[in-house]
Design a protein around this nucleic acid. Structure first.
Lengths: 101, 101
DNA sequence: CGTGTAAGGAATTCTGACACG
DNA sequence: CGTGTAAGGAATTCTGACACG
C-alpha cells in the first residue's frame, strides 16, 4: 500500500513527541518484535502513522501492566483471527459466484 | 484538520528523498512563500504529505520554466476562485434551506 | 532569479553496555 | 523485564554568505 497512513517517513524523535513514549521505549518495543520501522540508507528508523497508533495502543497495554511478550501474543492471535475471517469471507464470495458445492 | 495528510511530521531530508528536490530548493521555495512547513521547538522544519504533493507540483512548474513568483500568483488566484465557489455553494444551500429571496 | 557550496554550531540518532530491580 | 543514562561517532539541520549568471 502507498497510503499516507502506511508510509514510513517519521523519525523517532517525532514519534516520541506524538506518543509521549521515550526513545528508549520505542526502540525496546522494536527489539521485542512489537513494531517494525523501516531504516533509511544510513540506518535511521522511519515510522508510519500506523506505527504511531500501534505504539499508542502498546502504551495503554503497558500501563495496564501487560508485558511486551503478552502484547505480542495478543497481536499475533488477533491477526490470525482476522486472517481466518478474511479467508472465510473470500471463500464465501468465491462459492457464491461459481455456485460450487 | 488533524488528518494524516495535513499533519506536519516529515523532516526536510525525507522530503528531499520523496520529491527529489534539493534541500536548498525546498528551503528556497519556503523563502519565496510557496510553502509553509512548521518548526519544531528547536527550529527544524516539519512538512506534511500535502506539502510534499505541493512541492511536486512546484517542481513540475519550475521544469516548465515558470518562475516562483508566477507559481505563487497562480496558487493564490486558484485559491481565491475556490473560495468564491465555496461561498456561492454555501449561499445556495442556505437560500434553498430557508426559502429566502 | 534559482541553486550549489563551504562554514561552524547545535541537536539527532545509532549501538552496546551498565544499572536497577 | 522494562527503562534510564553516559559514551563516542556519524549524519542532519540551521543560518548567512559568496558564487554564478
Amino acid at each position: 500500500m502507498s497510503s499516507y497512513k502506511e508510509k514510513k517517513v517519521i523519525s523517532i524523535g517525532t514519534v516520541n513527541e506524538l506518543t509521549g513514549l521515550s526513545v528508549r521505549q520505542i526502540r525496546y518495543y522494536e527489539e521485542k518484535g512489537l513494531i517494525y520501522p523501516e531504516r533509511t540508507t544510513r540506518g535511521t528508523r522511519r515510522y508510519s502513522f500506523s506505527d504511531v497508533e500501534l505504539l499508542l495502543q502498546i502504551a495503554d497495554k503497558r500501563e495496564e501492566g501487560v508485558q511486551t511478550y503478552e502484547i505480542k501474543k495478543d497481536m499475533q492471535s488477533s491477526k490470525e483471527k482476522k486472517d481466518k475471517m478474511m479467508e472465510r469471507m473470500l471463500r464465501g464470495q468465491f462459492n457464491a459466484h461459481f455456485k460450487m458445492r
